[in-house]
Nucleic acid binder design. Structure first.
Lengths: 348, 348
DNA sequence: TACGATTACAGTACAGTACAGGATACAAAC
DNA sequence: GTTTGTATCCTGTACTGTACTGTAATCGTA
């Protein structure tokens, strides 16, 4: 084959030969001499042509294969799979579902990380096996792995399935791993960790609003229990802890039904936007005063909630993405708790 | 025999030939070109027609036989036995950016398509070359390609870059292609097309609100010109056409500045949510009445906009995803315009 | 200096792909 | 019955990647 005339192996160099092979193939891809799906010489023919050990060529090819630049088909050969994303920083961003808030984190991250990086987004739908597949398939292919771990159960210690998840995550090189949002997995040592402390966050935020909350007789947390995508149960725990600590009457609801009976003195904390919409509509319908007769606190702030005057307890999603980007760019490591605030408005 | 014209064997491909035969036949069954009890070519005639070794064809047939998709009768031939194949359908969903609305389309699509499919999401950031690479890399890897084509320029005819995009899209098998949202590319024949007719949609929707719009003296369209992710310019054209047709005074703004001077009788149409928030805040600040002194129409509806009583002109994102899913499941093909509505509320 | 890790080489073995050819058993048409 | 075409099974050959083995030279560091 004459395809590889332009590969130069320097016997004198201090750079290992297998690295030279890797680099020259990457170079040939970047200058367009090698294109996607193109076959590259077999290990045998390459080693014969350049008087190299088969082992050396194999090593180079296996590195390129790990980085997903080439793939191998047993009995056929090696083929180019990627022609882009070289010399850039490649980031894999894995989230459980696509919500408004995850989207805002992702977008603020992509904006902050800048043009010298490429970020792929993958959604694993809270599915353990899908997550494991994704991770296995992309092992070593990226420079950073940003993972938001949210799975069907939070009680991670007793489920073997999630054990697999934890071991899979732990197999990622520590300096490539960024854990976001959830810190309750037994991840040994992540490079970067930006988390919400769900239990204490809601507890502390509600405490900030205690004076106003005390005006109400009973607290309702609308927590979607049977949702396909579960919310952290620690939100529940933090809410309960707060209510018990300050001797407040409380109840957990699964959703705001259409025929819900509202009473003066009720205070609702909603998580899903649909529940908030339903609730406010019913308050208006029954001519209660929002923030007077009935209080509403919404989880996760948005600009439109501000316009509506809805009191919120919320983490700062934009900052979450920005912090992750900044820490990667600055190569700082460590654990950072993302700020969580009580945002006082008219609905309380 | 000419029965098997539709089998494609690529000698260069990294997929083994026998696998290509298997996939080809399964694909032809799933699209209905091969029916139950139908005879398929003998090993000999198949191998001669496609210049393959008999062994290769035999291997493919024996795999299909093992999977009970075909049966063999000694001395006669091979026959299809099963047309219901419950293999998972893989779908590639390509969008230009991750906005609230794209997200809603995606989520409603994934919900509607059901558990027997797997949908991967890829974001190409309006970047032509990134788009081309994604497509090239995933060529033949999916059963359906759902593409929302939005690129840096809409004037697609004069830019060679986007010519490449069009040819790349046209290379996708017609029965695997779903074009969404944008119908102004010269795509020859897509399997499914669900589009917004941006220019006529805004024109018609505004016409529905003409009586109320006439109360205002001047119309402002807040159209982010220099955004990283451009909005279709046909929105502009439709707006202009409407204003000219009905002799309304109008102006195009790039954004709502903090020091904007509001006048009684102004009517604003905002596209970005941030502009809507800014605008409403300023209206409140300057103690104008929303819907009285100053009118507001927002592009793209959301539940919270309903709560706020913001009049909207909007397409139905949920339906867009659902329609795509339904058409794929039902194997119907054709062009469908997604509904676009004028939603009358208090802000006008 | 000594040790361990990396690099590079050589050899062996195994498994998958694709081709070519041959032998046999069955079915249908002549 | 013969001929033709069919599936089925067998052999062999020449590639391919994958996975080990052992050996020697080199380099950095303790």
């Amino acid at each position: 084959m004459d395809i590889f005339k332009y590969v130069e192996i320097d016997g004198q160099s201090r750079i290992p030969k297998y690295r030279q092979i890797v680099d020259s193939i990457i170079h040939n891809i970047s200058v367009g001499k090698l294109n996607i799906d193109q076959k590259i010489p077999s290990i045998n023919s390459f080693s014969e042509e350049y008087l190299l050990s088969r082992d050396t060529v194999e090593k180079a090819y296996s590195i390129l294969k790990e980085r997903q630049i080439i793939t191998s088909i047993r009995g056929k050969g090696y083929y180019i799979t990627r022609t882009k994303l070289l010399s850039k920083v490649n980031i894999l961003f894995m989230i459980n579902k696509l919500s408004t808030y995850k989207m805002r984190i992702y977008n603020s991250f992509v904006n902050s990380i800048g043009g010298n990086s490429h970020t792929d987004l993958h959604i694993y739908h809270c599915d353990n096996s899908l997550f494991l597949n994704l991770l296995e398939k992309n092992r070593n292919a990226y420079d950073y792995y940003i993972i938001m771990p949210h799975f069907k159960t939070e009680d991670l210690k007793h489920i073997s399935y999630t054990d697999e998840v934890v071991t899979a995550i732990n197999k990622i090189a520590k300096d490539k791993l960024v854990i976001m949002d959830n810190n309750k997995l037994a991840i040994e040592k992540a490079f970067i960790e930006i988390y919400q402390d769900f239990e204490n966050d809601i507890y502390n935020a509600l405490q900030h609003g205690l004076q106003k909350i005390k005006k109400y007789e009973k607290l309702f947390l609308v927590y979607p229990e049977n949702s396909v995508y579960p919310y952290p149960r620690r939100i529940l725990h933090g809410f309960r802890k707060f209510c018990l600590e300050f001797s407040l009457d409380f109840e957990i609801l699964e959703e705001i039904y259409d025929d819900i009976i509202l009473k003066k003195g009720d205070l609702f904390i909603t998580i899903e936007e649909s529940d908030l919409v339903n609730l406010v509509n019913q308050i208006r319908e029954k001519e209660f005063s929002l923030g007077g007769d009935i209080g509403v606190i919404s989880y996760n702030d948005t600009p439109l909630k501000e316009l509506l005057g809805i009191t919120c307890i919320s983490t700062d999603f934009k900052m979450m993405g920005e912090t992750a980007a900044r820490m990667i760019l600055d190569k700082t490591k460590g654990k950072v708790k993302n700020p969580f605030n009580f945002i006082d408005r008219e609905s309380l």
